Computed example of a mutant assay.
Amino acid sequence: MDRQAPKKLKVSKKWTPSPLTLILLGLIAWLWFRPPADVSEENRPAPPWQVTLPDGRLLTSDSLKGKVVLVNFWATWCPYCRKEKPVIDDFWHDTRDRGFEVVSISIDDSPEKIASWMQDKGYAFMAAPTNASVAAAFGNVTSVPTSFIVDVEGRIRHKIAGQVHYPRLEKLVAPLLAEAKQP
């Protein structure tokens, strides 16, 4: 029996993770739940685009001029999209009175599914399905979430390939809102 006791000790030591293993597991978990996003400076004009909102209203890029707009590409099945929506909603509520707007473009859902999902989650910002004019303006976005920040003149200023976070939105949008208020 004395010989079995050391074997148990060896087995338990064998399964005890090293500090390096714990750090790597923590890093993997952090990346899994908060993946990095690639933010690029675009500063290019966007061709005119339009979407039909689920309630049948037509929304055009011209009607958004004078506002800073987050055009967010997403899908209802995307876990990172689901995770960023409350952040987008909070930021929109905090800044919409200063000229910020959100247009959430679903890459593959029907207008009915979009309306139902938005209503179920309690989001009031605009959402619509993609179309050819959106693809022409922003490119054929197939990786979600992907977002574009459009300035008051209709220029695409930033592209965010990945999940948005409140501090990131603040960093990218606040200067554009400040520019818009200057004469």
Rank of each mutant, 00 (worst) to 15 (best):
R3E: 14
Q4C: 09
A5D: 02
A5K: 11
K7G: 01
K8H: 07
K8R: 07
L9E: 13
K10C: 01
K10P: 05
V11A: 12
K14S: 05
W15Y: 15
T16R: 10
T16F: 03
P17F: 01
P19G: 11
L20D: 12
L20T: 14
T21A: 15
L22P: 00
I23W: 08
L25K: 02
G26N: 05
A29I: 15
W32G: 15
F33M: 13
F33A: 13
R34Y: 12
P36Y: 08
A37G: 06
D38I: 14
V39G: 00
V39D: 10
E41I: 12
R44N: 07
R44H: 01
P45R: 10
A46L: 11
P47N: 15
Q50W: 08
Q50F: 06
Q50N: 10
Q50L: 00
V51P: 05
V51N: 05
L53P: 05
L53C: 04
D55A: 12
R57W: 03
L58A: 11
L59F: 02
S61D: 07
D62P: 06
D62E: 14
L64F: 07
L64R: 02
L64K: 07
L64Y: 05
G66S: 03
G66T: 02
K67P: 02
V68F: 12
V68L: 11
V69T: 11
V69N: 07
V69I: 03
L70N: 11
V71H: 04
N72L: 04
F73H: 04
F73L: 07
F73Y: 09
A75Y: 01
A75T: 15
W77H: 08
C78R: 12
P79A: 08
Y80M: 04
Y80T: 14
E84I: 04
E84S: 02
I88Q: 00
D89A: 15
D89I: 08
D89V: 09
T95E: 13
T95L: 09
R96W: 01
D97M: 03
D97L: 06
D97N: 10
E101W: 03
E101M: 03
E101H: 09
V103W: 09
V103Y: 00
S110W: 01
S110T: 15
P111I: 06
E112R: 13
E112G: 15
I114M: 06
A115Q: 14
A115L: 11
S116Y: 01
F125A: 02
M126W: 13
A127G: 07
A127W: 08
A127M: 07
P129T: 03
T130G: 00
S133P: 02
A135R: 04
A136D: 14
A137F: 00
G139K: 07
G139L: 10
T146L: 09
F148W: 07
F148R: 01
I149K: 09
I149H: 03
V150D: 05
D151S: 10
V152R: 13
G154M: 00
G154H: 04
I156G: 03
R157A: 10
I160E: 00
I160R: 09
A161I: 06
Q163N: 11
V164D: 04
V164I: 15
V164G: 10
R168T: 15
L169K: 04
E170D: 15
E170W: 03
K171M: 14
L172S: 06
L172T: 11
P175T: 06
A178V: 12
A180W: 03
Q182D: 09
P183T: 15
P183G: 15
